[in-house]
Structures are given as C-alpha cells and as structure tokens.
Design a protein around this nucleic acid. Sequence first.
DNA 1: GTCTATATCTCGATAGAC
DNA 2: GTCTATCGAGATATAGAC
Lengths: 193, 193
Amino acid sequence: MISQSNIEKTDSILSAALRLFVKYGFHGTPTSRIATEAGVSNGTLFHYFKTKDELIVALYIRVKEQLNAYLAEHQDEKDDVRVRFRNIFVHSINWSLKNREEFYFIQQFHFSPMLALVPADEFERQSKIHVGLMQEAVKQKILKPLPIELIATLVSSQIYGLHQYLVGSDLSVGKQQKMIEAALELTLEMILK
Amino acid sequence: MISQSNIEKTDSILSAALRLFVKYGFHGTPTSRIATEAGVSNGTLFHYFKTKDELIVALYIRVKEQLNAYLAEHQDEKDDVRVRFRNIFVHSINWSLKNREEFYFIQQFHFSPMLALVPADEFERQSKIHVGLMQEAVKQKILKPLPIELIATLVSSQIYGLHQYLVGSDLSVGKQQKMIEAALELTLEMILK
DNA sequence: GTCTATATCTCGATAGAC
DNA sequence: GTCTATCGAGATATAGAC
C-alpha cells in the first residue's frame, strides 16, 4: 500500500496549490496543474473541493491554523505580559522565515477578492491569541493611551516590515537574531508607556 | 467633437481597469469588460496595450507616478530633515486616504507575480524622494544605528498599518488627524536617536 | 474514491473593413 | 485609430466507467 489516505490527498493538493499560487498567482495556476503536481487526477481534486475558490479559501484557513498552532505552542498564559508579547513577536517572525511561501500566501490572499469569501467567524477564531494578550495588557495598563486596534495593527505591520527586510537582505543567522531583537525593542518602546 | 483624444482614451482604459482590478482581481477582470466600461472597443484596448499584462504594469507605473508627484509637491529640500520626514509621512497617508483604490492596487500588485514584470530601473526612479531624504538623515547622523533599509521598510510598514487602521475604523476628520499625528510621533521616536 | 474523457464556456488576442 | 467579428487556446467543472 503506497497509496495515500484521504487526508494525505487533500494535504498534497493543498501543498501543491500553495507552491503554485505563490509562484504564478491564483489566476496563473490551473486546477489541472495543481492536480498533476499533487499526483492526483483532475476529477479527484474536484471530489475534495467543489470549486477552485473553495480550495483557495480552505488553503488560507489551513495556513492560518498552522501559524496559530505554532504561536500557541510558544505561548504560556502564566508568563508576564511582556514576555508573552515578546514570544508572539519573535515566533511570528521565526515562523514567517521558516515558512516563507505560507507567509507570502497570507498576504497575497489578504489583497485579493478571495478575502470576502472567508466566513466572518473564522477571523475571530484566528485572532484569539492576539486578542487575549491585548486584553491582558489593557487590564494591566501598560499600553500607551491609543486605540488598541491601532496598536494591534501597527504591531502586525512591524512584523510584516521586518519580515520583508530580513528576506530581502541576506544576513547570517546571528545577525538576523540581532535584528529581530532590535526591531522587537523598537516595537515595545513604541507601544508601551 | 465629443470624442476623446488618445491620451484621454488610455486614461479611461486605465481608470476602468483600476476600478475593476481592485474589485474583482486581475483574474476576475476580463479585458472585454475593461474596454466596455472605458467606452472603447476590445480592439482599441489592444491597440494601446499589446497584452493584458502590459496594461497592468502600465497602470502600476502610472499610479506610483501619481503618488510620487503628490509627495514631490509637498516636499521642499530646503526644509529641515525632520520636517521633510513629517511631510512624506503625513502626505503619504493623506494620499492613501484620498486615493484608496490606487493605494490598495499598489499592495495588490506587490503581492502578485506581476511585480516581476516591472523593469528594474523603474523602482529606482520611484524611490528617489525617499532615498534622498534617507541619505540626508544619515549625513546628519540623526537616525538610530540600524541598517537604513530596515528603517525605510519599517517606516513604510507603519504607513501601511496606519492606513489599514484608518480605513477600518470610521473616525471624524479631526480624530483622524490626531491619530495620524500620534502615529507620526511614534514613528519618529522609533527611528530617531 | 479515483480515474479518463469531455462538455461548456470564456478569455485574450488578431484580422480586416472603414 | 477604431470598430466588428471571430479564432484558437485553455480554463473549470461534470459524467460515467471502474
């Protein structure tokens, strides 16, 4: 039995799709090509995903779940808020560097009409880790007096920006860690009283 | 003579394309629809743009030129570097709010395979204003000791993040200006010694 | 569940009259 | 330069045998 299980099949379809979408865009990637590279037939692909759009959205949800699972692993609610903040920041960047295609795909998806196809409650589910931390920080009154949505958005942007810089410049692992620490300090100074 | 001149025609083609791309994506927008909404025939569209890709890239270059022209208007090299920095930041945000489709399109384009089709020297042309300011800031040694590429990227990210927040929340013009000022201060603190 | 074969459609791009 | 008409390619999605 070399043949794949069902889960493995949807997995290899989504993995192939991810690789191709990042390289050629949603448009430039025919479902037939996804099927071929996943090692299944065209008909099988449409057995697991009713439409191409459904496949794209499912991929987005899966990628976000992977990111959130990674962050949850490195998050302990018993830690000090500053430590928890640091962990989210640093591990978000680490994940983004270890999973560049996935991270690119998230942004590609965000700036596409596909975003409107995601069920509303999915976004809530995804942001639990961040919301929890923000609420705790508000409770402890350690944030500057600004809307928390603004603070959250600016922190996200810092992560995107830092990621972009690190991918563009080709630093050694050591220098990279120094830069991450430096950017983290800037970010903390920016949002903390 | 109600008929349009050539320039007006490429203009209305690009304007229609912008509106449609933002709404339906590059994929979801047929050239036929662009032509119809621009008030020209399909054949005419392909007279002015050899391919659809060429049209998309031309639109990107035009939009970036509009942004840069706007920033150049509000930039005076005789001003103090901090003032110039402030002007770029504030007017970038102002432009992004007055030209939301254009600003969205820039980001949509950046996260698409189309980015690779832009001639390399085009990016240099586009970044002259920012590079000039950064060089002056380096010369005057007012920046924190970090790679200037990192600083530039983080500042851009702040602008994207602030834009996203302002578009999402529905503030009065007055509150909006307060937020812009606040974010500018955070950004300055972040990068200046 | 998986495959092959194919229906159906739409799109980008061209040809050629005016 | 602009239009109408259309070609040919390639896309999504389905049908039906196994």
